[in-house]
Amino acid sequence: MSAFDHQQQQQQLMRPDNVEEEEDEEDEEEEEDEQIQGEYNEEYYGSDVSNESGPETMPWIAWFCSLGGHQYFAEVADEFVEDDFNLTGLNSIVPFYKEALDMILDLEPEEDSTKVPDVSIVEASAEQLYGLIHQRFIVTRQGLQQMADKYQAGHFGSCPRTFCQSTNVVPCGRYDLPGVETVKLYCPNCQDIYSPPSSRYHNLDGAYFGTTFAHMLFHIYPELVPIIPNKIYAPAIYGFKISEYSRCGPRMQWLRNKQDPKSLDASGKLIKDSDDDEK
């Protein structure tokens, strides 16, 4: 996680003082989160100390997904976690793999696990392990279905771009290995990625969602892709568009220029255009 911490430090360094107001706001949110988390923690530790098998205790996975800042997570099915084949290779990435897996599956820790120095370390491992299992789970049929439901319910927020008209977004990562970058949000309309607006997601690892999931979702459920008229912002002064030849004229309009893929040939040319040329 050291790369992660470093990144966060850098972000903090780059942040000027005057965003305090926004931070205040987010701090309020975070305080709420912490309260909720505190309650859950008490409940969790309470059950840990006394009885594991009480009917009122939440399973670890459900508890984890209900924490503040974990709204993006789907609940991975127990059968998926229990199948060793699905976890291939994860034991070499996650420290205290076995203990972490036991924690996720609510199994009693073995008596001889005295080499574990602290519960909090296993908790961190469990979070990472769950995240990586989650990355694999959400590209399965069952996982996609769950995430599609969450998408339609708007659990991931909406695109900040004005002309996307609050299209719902999905979480995605730019890397599949943990500890590189935090989670980003992919908008299916402008096909671009954005930082989550709330700082509570700024320490959630992008690898827990992976590079594939967002695109797999819209590949399997094409009806989820919104149909919004393509609009490009044209800068103007007193109603006059700024000339391309101006030093500060528009240079990035290509970025939002979207065409229906059916009207383009494989080299990216407009099919209609070529017809006109022939005539």
């Binding site: 309009q253 290509w254 220029n257 893929p261 383009l264 494989a266 990216g268």
Partner: peptide
Amino acid sequence: YVPRIFGFKLHDVAKQQRYQDMI
């Protein structure tokens, strides 16, 4: 941003991006 599924680019998106490059 280049969308990828298991490391492979998406055909439709790649076509659009080529069009954008042309523009």
